[in-house]
Design a protein around this nucleic acid. Structure first.
Length: 573
RNA sequence: AGCGGGGUAGGGUAGCCUGGCAGCCCGCGGGGCUCAUAACCCCGAGGUCGGUGGUUCAAAUCCACCCCCCGCUACCA
């Protein structure tokens, strides 16, 4: 038994998360956290709302409210959504929490004490009308290379050239359109150069990082790290604790990354009233830490975060595994809040239950390349995989036992050879699912779950227990017992993926307790208990209506309307 | 432009590290079964493995160059 700290990237709460955010970090992490618990490990699973930063400040300003009003509402709403999606957080907190802010301040002071912080003057674009410094991408203008009129200060979206805001012709503030001026300001930097060698060695020797993360990071670090600014001229955020930095805040990324630690601290404070216990997890080399993120986040988790931990001088455990997904596309396009492309996770729940989304998104998890979410694929996964393959197999077996054996799990002296062979095959698929999960191949694991159901269907067709029972009762009972064993195996395997359905199946099987507490290492090989009574049998899943795809536009519209009424006022459209 | 990832039947994917008849799911065509949620099972058709060149007895797999998609490039998060 080990200790695992599972983390999911913190959603940025300028809006409700979309499906890509869900599978990219939080749902993947949840499936994994559930899996680890089912393997008997001690798990702390944390995440939280990422609240600071310019985009939220501006969004709030646009709505005429304080940023905290906005993030209060979105945070509370997201909490409800995570519950609805059965995300099994130990703690889902926020960057505005007291524990977090204090932690960040202490941590930053430590970096300064250790000599990793220095300050330097910079000349940055400033909007006098909005009274704010503008991040590069908030300066718009005409691209000096291709003439595109809506080029951003960091990059031209038309020709792809990297730009600097001073290069833009007719520069203007992206918010109000007025011409920015340049003002001198002082910022504080973390000197990553001093950690470069340690970081390089750590990356090189790392055996658990996936290829894509490792290569990318090694390459980046070997090219030489530069100091990185960690303060911003804004009041929205964690106050920068450095001497002379009054009125400035910590750059949102550095604050958010430390949330993994502060969330753990807060968890033990809340659950055990212990404000020191977090160190048993973070200052402990035996603890394995996992990070579930999207591919755009690799540098922050594989370079900057470990660098910060090293620079602290404290014995922090460095990332053990970082699972970076590619992107989920929506019908061939990027999800986009501003262009209203995609489905948001509250809207999704108005279309299908959480279990269906959890399974479908796991099946579409972009593990190797960007993956396209299509309604056609969603429909196929729900109707043909969940219902036809899994749900119907379960239903076949349970109704047979209900109708032919009085709903009682049969006593079988010894399984017939072909039944034994089938059970062995089922258990071997379960082991394969575990092997895939052990290396965080979540999608591949679901293949083995489906294979159990498919093999089960094949087995029923071949053995025809309904016929056997009439010809040779003992043989029929043996076959049904084997089939039931497969159903029980499915209940275990489905638990991390479709927790509600797995639990319902568990009780249909007449099992006691919760499937989520049945540790696989102890339970998976256990045969169904003869004599126990099958509970009320009902379909595990139901299909999406046959005309679902035809009327998908209407379905989405209805879902949007319904979801909108439940949203807090500041994010209602 | 540089760096990382990816391109495999109509769609979704495995295989690539370590070369040996290109595997699986959906869809499609045909058949079977009747326990079950109009389900399930079997058989079949469908591939210039992004392109070109090379190494090799043999290349999806190794090498070189090129094309396309995504991400990052240090002030979006």
């Amino acid at each position: 038994m080990g200790r695992y700290l599972v983390t999911a990237a913190w959603p940025y709460v300028n809006h409700v998360p979309h499906l890509g955010t869900l599978i990219g970090s939080i749902l993947s992490a949840d499936i994994y956290a559930r899996y680890l618990r089912l393997r008997g490990h001690e798990v702390v699973f944390v995440s939280g709302s990422d609240e600071h930063g310019t985009p939220i400040e501006l969004e709030a300003r646009k709505k005429g409210v304080h940023p905290k009003d906005l993030t209060d509402q979105v945070h509370e709403y997201n909490l409800k959504l995570w519950r609805a999606y059965r995300i099994s957080f130990s703690n889902y907190t926020r960057t505005e929490s007291k524990v977090h802010k204090e932690f960040v301040i202490e941590f930053m002071k430590k970096l300064e004490e250790n000599g990793y912080i220095f300050s330097q003057e910079e000349v940055l674009p400033y909007c006098e009308r909005d009274k704010t410094f503008l991040p590069d991408r908030f300066v718009e203008g005409t691209c000096p290379y291709c003439g595109f009129e809506r080029a951003r200060g960091d990059q031209c979206d038309n020709c792809g050239r990297l730009l600097h805001p001073t290069e833009l012709k007719n520069p203007r503030c992206a918010l109000c359109g007025s011409k920015p001026v340049y003002k001198t300001t002082r910022h504080w930097f973390i000197d990553l150069r001093r950690i470069q060698d340690r970081l390089l060695k750590w990356l090189r020797d790392h055996r658990e990082l996936p290829e894509n993360v490792k290569k990318f990071s090694l390459n980046w670090v070997s090219q030489g790290l530069r100091p990185r600014s960690i303060t911003r001229d804004t009041s929205w955020g964690v106050p920068a604790p450095f001497k002379g930095a009054e009125g400035k805040t910590i750059y949102v990324w550095f604050d958010a990354l430390l949330g993994y630690i502060s969330a753990t601290k807060e968890y033990f404070m809340k659950s055990e009233g212990d404000s020191e216990k977090w160190r048993e997890w973070w200052w402990n080399r035996e603890v394995k830490t996992l990070y579930f993120i999207g591919k755009d986040n690799i540098p922050f988790h594989a370079i900057i975060f470990p660098a910060m931990l090293m620079a602290s001088g404290d014995p922090y455990v460095l990332p053990w595994r970082i699972s970076a997904t590619e992107y989920l596309m929506y019908e061939g396009q990027q999800f986009s809040k501003s262009r209203r492309i995609g489905v948001w996770i509250d809207e999704a729940l108005e279309i299908a239950p959480a279990d269906y989304w959890r399974w479908a998104l796991a099946r579409m998890r972009p593990e190797a390349r960007d993956t396209n979410f299509t309604w056609k694929e969603f429909y196929r996964i729900v109707n043909s995989e969940l219902n036809d393959d899994i749900g119907n197999f379960v239903h076949r077996v349970l109704t047979l036992i209900k109708n032919r054996l009085d709903g009682e799990v049969p006593e079988v002296r010894s399984l017939a050879d072909e039944d034994k062979k089938f059970v062995e095959m089922v258990l071997s698929e379960a082991r394969k699912a575990m092997e895939e999960l052990d290396v965080i191949k979540i999608k591949a694991a679901t293949d083995h779950i489906l294979e159990v159901a498919r093999a089960g269907n094949r087995f029923l067709n071949e053995r025809q227990p309904w016929k056997l029972l009439a010809e040779d009762e003992e043989a029929g009972r043996s076959a049904l017992y084997a089939a039931l064993w497969a159903v029980k195996t499915l209940a275990h395997l489905l638990a991390p993926f479709t927790p509600d359905a797995a639990e319902r199946l568990w009780s249909m099987l007449g099992m006691e307790g919760s499937v989520h507490e049945a540790i696989w290492d102890e339970w998976l090989d256990k045969p169904p208990k003869p004599g126990s009574k099958i509970g009320r049998v009902e379909p595990l899943f139901t299909k999406l209506p046959a005309n679902f795809l035809e009327r998908i536009d209407a379905v989405i519209d209805e879902a949007r309307v319904k979801a909108a009424t439940k949203r807090p006022p500041l994010i209602r459209e």
